[in-house]
Design a protein around this nucleic acid. Sequence first.
DNA 1: GTCTATAAGATGATAGAC
DNA 2: GTCTATCATCTTATAGAC
Lengths: 201, 201
Amino acid sequence: MPTAENASASRSEEILSVAQNFIQSRGYNGFSYRDIAAEIGIKSASIHYHFPTKGDLGKAVTARYTEQFGKQLQRIEASADTAHERLKKYATLFRDTLIERHLLCMCGMLAGDIETLPELVKLEVAHFFEAQQQWLTGVITTGKTTGEISPAITAAAWATTLLAALEGAMLVSRGLDQNDQFDIVTDALLSSLFKSSKTNS
Amino acid sequence: MPTAENASASRSEEILSVAQNFIQSRGYNGFSYRDIAAEIGIKSASIHYHFPTKGDLGKAVTARYTEQFGKQLQRIEASADTAHERLKKYATLFRDTLIERHLLCMCGMLAGDIETLPELVKLEVAHFFEAQQQWLTGVITTGKTTGEISPAITAAAWATTLLAALEGAMLVSRGLDQNDQFDIVTDALLSSLFKSSKTNS
DNA sequence: GTCTATAAGATGATAGAC
DNA sequence: GTCTATCATCTTATAGAC
């Protein structure tokens, strides 16, 4: 899950970074151009120079998020060999966002706001979820070939299930204000997925 | 999941019903008193007569939602005997909201908006999730005693997991604009939970 | 209970100076 | 690129008439 720090290269990037944080904490309708401007220390008119409309900003920040997320997925593939390790690291992406950074997944947030989003932003949100599904399906499929995961498991179905459970676990943990609920969900799901395997390293 | 129809008894109920629909479709910050008033055919000042602040309205609609949800849970207990049937009907509550009514769970929505909510509304949201957890834990515990569910399953952990997966499945289905994703998640989860049982009627 | 009128502030957005 | 100034509109909320 992209980190969205403020030590940015360009002003555009800084705006995107701040906007991302706002969406992940307050949702698409919970912040304004003035909020972003105040956080950076400029005026809201300056934001409009970089992103004429809020839809432009929303589209850009969502596309950037999916792209950054993709890099994290590559990092996981490079640093973990087994499906089990990869899925654990994947879950940690969400966990860190929730517990260390006190944020939700940006596209989980936007999915809730979908009825209020410009069409181009909706498309980016769908694209994010498709990318996650695709990656998870690949990891689970690999796990089946190595014997880590039971052949009875349908990779695509469990990809969606895992994704949904992670998004929902963030939501429920936040609603209850109980961080430990997140770990309980990921532990239950992952041990269910890997139950009849050789080693749950 | 409460139905929130507009054929209401009192005006207060009608306002709550319309507000609930707005929260479930657009989130807490995606509608205004004017939106509610326009839908009913009155003026926004009239809403303030019934609910002075938006926080008052938010608290009332959330408490009412939890209460109505509780009645649905009682209906499930009365109409289904096995844990499997009860959990299937529970999932159908969420499914109907998503697929038939094109809405999300109200408290799932509010959990996303939590950083922008008045304190009293946050408490109601937490109360809703606690009530769901408690009920699901009871159903799963019963399923263990009857042998429907493996004794290895931790009831409380799977209660949260099921709840999170249902909330997340709504979100992901909506983000992808693919209703079938919801059923895929519930099928995977429920068959996982009941896999080694006598009969999955 | 609902209305009109009104307030004080926020919102997304634009025009034009520097 | 960023600013000031301004815009029309929306937001929550109140006062007082009917």
